[in-house]
């Protein structure tokens, strides 16, 4: 990495905090250095904010390679060690097919259709966050 080419502001993926949940939105081309930076930032953010959940929205990602797949798996593993659960939301069909063809089924990662679903999913597992207290299937 040459100093002349590095742009510190663009090198970070923003991590938003919503209560006890951290929200990361990946968009467009994610360079390897950015992905690695995100892995580090997220670790610090989870520890610093005492987050119990992480939602990664990948609906803006059109191309995924084996490296990004591994980073996602690593994020999930790291978050779990820090007592937070990771949910990936909004993966596109073409990306999902590519991931499967690459053999990256991300077994340790929970998934949801949308960010909203992901937040609900985290709420269901964490009783404190459960909205309204109505659990599906309860009388």
């Amino acid at each position: 990495m040459t100093a002349g080419f590095s742009r510190p502001a663009a090198g970070h993926v923003p991590v938003l905090r919503l209560g006890d949940v951290l929200l990361v939105t990946l968009q467009g081309d994610l360079y390897d250095s950015m992905a690695e930076q995100l892995l580090q930032d997220l670790g610090e953010a989870i520890a610093g904010n005492r987050a119990t959940g992480v939602v990664i929205n990948v609906s803006g990602v059109e191309i995924v390679d084996s490296f990004l797949g591994r980073i996602l798996a690593e994020i999930a593993a790291k978050a779990r060690l820090l007592a937070a659960e990771t949910v990936m939301a909004g993966m596109r069909p073409a990306v999902a097919i590519t991931m499967v063809e690459l053999g990256l089924t991300l077994p340790g990662l929970r998934t949801a259709l949308t960010t909203e679903d992901a937040l609900r999913l985290l709420g269901e597992t964490d009783p404190v966050l459960r909205p309204g207290g109505t659990r599906p299937g309860s009388p």
């Binding site: 990936m88 939301a89 909004g90 993966m91 596109r92 069909p93 990306v95 999902a96 097919i97 991931m99 499967v100 063809e101 089924t105 991300l106 998934t111 949801a112 259709l113 949308t114 679903d117 992901a118």
Partner: peptide
């Protein structure tokens, strides 16, 4: 594969 891809999408 189909099952895995669907799972990835949530």
């Amino acid at each position: 594969k189909t099952v895995a891809a669907a799972r990835l999408m949530g």
